[in-house]
Design a protein around this nucleic acid. Structure first.
Lengths: 333, 333
DNA sequence: CTGTTAGCGCTTTCAC
DNA sequence: GTGAAAGCGCTAACAG
């Protein structure tokens, strides 16, 4: 692999000049530039980015921490992040936290020690204090899917409460009065917020929240499936189920179909997230959008702006969910 | 940020000694080691990985190229890759090729110039020649989902032909004789191989391949949906559809349900890949497994072994698909 | 077992 | 406009 020395020698100029044309910085005469370009071409020179990083104290890489790499949720977000960042020639280093505190912290350390110029973090477990500390650190950080007091300016998040409210409100407006709720794991903030939205919608209609119609799931299909079984077996009657995400809704619907229940004739369903798949199942799932792609893009652009001062986007902190009405809720009234 | 100098000064030892304890290489007396450890602790020293890389000519990072970051397919693979590699303290740098030749090449360049110690590549478009060239290069490469003559030892792939055969064979054995086929885009090798398996199964039963019952889709839901519409509208009759992946099968089934067709009573379906979601739709999709996770894990382990000489796994090149029988195929005979 | 000493390949003042 | 030279923080002979 040719080095900058080889190029400077071949072109008959100094190191500094080669560096200038490589980085397109400083003034270089056209003639010199051409000589350098030719030499680079001839040697198939490509800068050693490691050396660049060491010398310039910039790694040109940004670390992304998500809780999982699989599943329908983070893929679309990462897609946007990668796409924005690579267009700007920045590297994306990924790490997964797997919803485990030690792993999350470990991943952050890992990314930090890698010398990432910035971090995009979707942390589920670590404490607010830890995040505050992190944001106060030297490396710029943007937090996705989380709103932490005191560092709100680094947070990009969805109004989950409103989303939960919209979902439940829709079911209620359709005339349902006995509404079950399959929640995400309550150690996750978004799960708590969505539940809170549900309770708020209930309260507005003067319906008391009934613990017997509540199940704490895990945000994946299995959890919805099991939760639904529990709910059904409890003997409590209900005509609709609000699920804290689409994956659990799918699992729950699957169980209903297995037991010969019609959706939405016998039981209505609402989901959350608007992931791609449920559009293709029957009945099409009514749900609430979660603009995770936009959030990913926003985070990436913010990094670009803050760290590499390219572009200048307005930083939108709070994203609004919207109801997507499809076919899984029956009108009762 | 403390440097190795600070540590060596505080501990009263040389740079080399500090380096030795950091890397756990060479012999260091317990007493000295302890002094160094204390100093590191006290200074909250963390090695600068960029400098390490430059000096050791190793980046401790491996590049992963996939065609997309979203979708149900690559997530599980990346999950395994990340998990294996991070456990070994290696960084995972990702890039997406988006099924575009320029972008794929670009991504490879990108990863290479980053000084990745190895590459795990799922390239769909670039030519075999390009890949041969790449594999002959200095950086070790493992190719996923592709079998290229001459560099077979670097390939990890699925026997797609067999998979296609299994799917069609099952439908045929169930008594279906008019079988439509919704293919993946034929510029992709796996799509071609699966189709070939289909044709082989057909041939075994003495059934001629009928162009009118064939649709070239795009491996995503929309393609299945549209292909199904085309097939249905063509007026040709058929009792089963073999889809080259589950996503298209889902789209196709969705269209059937919209049109009031029963699955599998009116039309039977088989998919391919065994992605998580379709297990939760109705009817549960009969499909063929694609052990993409195992392939990811295998690739990562190979890298570990080859590049970092840890572990010693047997390198399994060819993975076998298996039929998963669920409820989407009706028995006709 | 420990220290000395060159670099790794590039950026970046500071002169000229 | 261009060049000289001093590092960036660490590894890896080599010597002792």
């Amino acid at each position: 692999m040719a080095t900058i020395y080889d190029v400077s020698f071949l072109a008959g100029v100094s190191l500094a000049t080669v560096s200038r044309v490589v980085n397109n910085t400083g003034k270089v005469s056209d003639k010199t530039r051409q000589k350098v370009m030719d030499a680079m071409e001839q040697l198939d020179y490509r800068p050693n980015t490691i050396a660049q990083s060491l010398a310039s104290n910039r790694s040109n890489s940004v670390g992304v921490l998500v809780s999982q790499l699989d599943g329908p949720f983070y893929g679309p977000m990462m897609r946007e992040v990668e796409s924005v960042l690579r267009a700007a020639n920045k590297h994306v280093i990924i790490a997964a936290g797997h919803s485990d505190e030690a792993q999350e912290k470990d991943a952050v350390e890992f990314l930090l020690s890698r010398g990432c110029d910035a971090l995009i973090v979707d942390a589920e477990i670590v404490s607010n204090d830890y995040l505050v500390q992190l944001c106060r650190g030297k490396t710029p950080v943007v937090l996705i899917n989380r709103m932490v007091d005191g560092i709100a300016e680094y947070c990009v998040h969805l109004d989950n409460l409103k989303g939960g409210y919209l979902a439940s409100r829709f079911v209620l407006d359709a005339g349902h009065r006995q509404v079950a709720y399959i929640s995400g794991p309550l150690f996750k903030l978004d799960a708590r917020e969505r539940l809170q939205g549900h309770k708020q919608a209930l309260a507005e209609k003067g319906i008391p929240f009934d613990e017997a119609l509540f199940h704490e799931g895990n945000f994946i299909e299995e959890g919805g499936y099991e939760g639904m079984a529990k709910l059904l077996d409890s003997g409590k009657s209900f005509t609709a189920v609000v699920c804290a995400n689409d994956q659990m809704a799918s699992g729950a619907i699957a169980l209903c179909l297995e037991r010969g229940l019609q959706v939405p004739e016998d039981i209505s369903f609402v989901g959350f997230d608007n992931i791609p798949f449920p559009r293709y199942i029957s009945p099409k799932l009514t749900t609430v959008t979660n603009p995770i792609q936009s959030m990913g893009k926003m985070a990436a652009n913010w990094v670009l702006q803050q760290v590499y001062d390219c572009r200048d986007a307005v930083f939108n902190h709070k994203f609004e969910p919207e109801l997507v009405v499809r076919d899984s809720v029956a009108k009762l009234s």
